[in-house]
Amino acid sequence: MLIRKIILPLLFIGFISGCSHYSSSEERPDNKAVTATQYPEPDPEISKLLNTYRDSLHLQMGETIATIHDTLRFSKPESALGNLVADALRFRAGSELKQFVNIGVIGDSSFRLYLTPGDLTRMDVLEFMPYENHLVILKLKGERVMELANQVAELGGAPISGMRFRIDGDRARGVLVNAQTLNPAEEYLVATTSWAANGGDQFPALWDYSDRIDLHEVNVRELYIDYFKSRRNIHANRDGRIRS
């Protein structure tokens, strides 16, 4: 998996001045010295060489697997794209396990593209989700699932499937799991990625599970390719699962 990017240029300025062993940024007489300039024209020789490899790339990756009919972006509290990516995890987990899986969850930081109307190729999906992860199914106590809902609420919403709730401040209210009131004593199956289960992402509730199944053979990137393929036509679809 790629290490997630850390972009802190502004943060660093405060950070540096607070730290005694740095040479001070105040010594820098003129920040304009680093003003970025650019050069947009591609080098013809390198472009040509790159293009000699492109045919094979398109042959292997250019297959259209679905048609996108609306512009799909991640947004809060709920978005069509968020619903889709979380549903895909939950549905696949259910079919792999041959058992009903209650919840799917994945952070939107795992995705690097939004989707625009037109053909969706295998290459697009690999860019959409560039990280190497496998599908993980966790068994969580109801009280952990409540924490999960609250962690989603704190973020103002996140891709989730199988749950419905309202965000009140930074708390989740009226939490339903599969249309039933959340029972703190019950155990629930939650589908997510190995990255989130291993301590990545922003859902610490996932890290305290009573059981864990690693489906190493289900690569999450391939999971999304399969899911888009099976859907063929993708429309924006929101169902009010998270409201604020």
Partner: peptide, 12 residues
Amino acid sequence: THTFLDYPVGVV
């Protein structure tokens, strides 16, 4: 760490 440093950081 994919850090965008706008200018080098000096350490003694």
